[in-house]
């Protein structure tokens, strides 16, 4: 086990964490501003990936596909908000869970009807093929680009929320929605914009990740559940918490899957060690979540108080 290998896994963890951040940021924003739990967020991730793969296949360019995927997810988000989500703001969480669960069924089967039952393949753009020599380690250019994308988006999101007029309204919406409505902000439009923004982030994550895994129906929900773990760890409604939680989950999960089987190999026979190590590694982040719950039930960075 060399330093290069460990470093490579560490970078993989960071890359995974940043993609989780894109998902978690949208979820936590929607919860913070509208008080809504959206299970269909994973479907928007899937829509981004499918549209990117389909458009990239026709246009012959990944970048055109990426823009199309992002736009399609944002448009789908806005449409869903106007048709369904809008009716759920005043409802209890059970109704929200159920309606968005219904949306998952509708969107998953809808995508299957349009794109067929087989997975699509999305290839990495030519410019980002191969590896880059980082001195200690040769690392995939594409994954490095994902890290760059993730960081750039995080900074962009922070600037948007901290420095723009829309950001002021979003923050105002988080602290007192009646007051900003009274001050003349069109709250319905604001909600649609916030939901579409979260959808665009999810769609972007889906399109970006789509190039390193297969694009298939049901790809969004495992990521969605991990994003929930991120939010529980980071604190709900907090973008900073989402970032810290996402990086923790990404790195711990990746390193656990890499190191635990090797650690068990010291005491068990190889075949058994792989099985036991893999099984326990898959539980690691949930144990982390349980620990955070015991020590800080509201997460590491609670948004309100």
């Amino acid at each position: 086990m060399s330093l290069a290998l460990i470093l490579e896994q560490l970078l993989n963890g960071v890359q995974f964490g940043l993609m989780l951040f894109l998902m978690a940021a949208g979820l936590t924003l929607v919860f913070g501003v509208m008080g809504l739990i959206n299970l269909a967020h994973g479907s928007l991730f899937m829509i981004g990936a499918f549209v990117c793969a389909a458009v990239a296949g026709v246009a012959g360019s990944f970048w055109v596909g990426l823009v199309a995927g992002l736009a399609a997810a944002a448009a789908a988000g806005a449409l869903i908000e106007i048709l369904v989500i809008r009716r759920l703001y005043g409802r209890d969480h059970l109704d929200q869970v159920l309606a968005t669960f219904a949306l998952i069924l509708i969107l998953s089967e809808g995508v299957r009807m349009i794109f067929g039952p087989f997975p699509l393949y999305l290839s990495v753009p030519d410019a980002l093929r191969g590896t880059l020599d980082l001195g200690v380690v040769e690392y995939s250019r594409y994954r490095l680009a994902l890290i760059g994308f993730g960081i750039a988006t995080a900074i962009g999101l922070w600037l948007l929320i901290a420095r723009t007029r829309l950001g002021i309204r979003i923050r105002a919406g988080e602290s007192d929605r009646e007051m900003i409505a009274a001050l003349g902000v069109n709250i319905r439009v604001l909600y649609t914009v916030v939901f579409a923004l979260g959808a665009a982030l999810a769609g972007m994550a889906g399109a970006l990740v789509g190039a390193i895994q297969s694009v298939q129906v049901g790809m969004g929900e495992p990521v969605l559940i991990l994003a929930f773990v991120v939010i529980v760890i980071g604190g709900i409604g907090s973008i900073k918490g989402a970032m810290v939680g996402a990086l923790m989950v990404g790195v711990i999960d990746t390193m656990g899957r890499f190191l635990l089987p090797r650690a068990f190999a010291l005491v068990l026979e190889p075949a058994q060690a792989t099985g036991v190590g893999a099984a326990l590694a898959s539980m690691l982040i949930y144990v982390l979540m349980a620990l955070v719950l015991v020590l800080r039930p509201k997460g590491l960075f609670p948004a309100h108080g």
Partner: peptide, 19 residues
């Protein structure tokens, strides 16, 4: 809601990977 979902997913992955 999110926590119960996450813990169930943990047990699911455990069953999936326990050989």
């Amino acid at each position: 809601i999110m926590i119960t979902l996450a813990f169930a997913q943990m047990i699911f992955y455990f069953a999936l990977s326990w050989p």
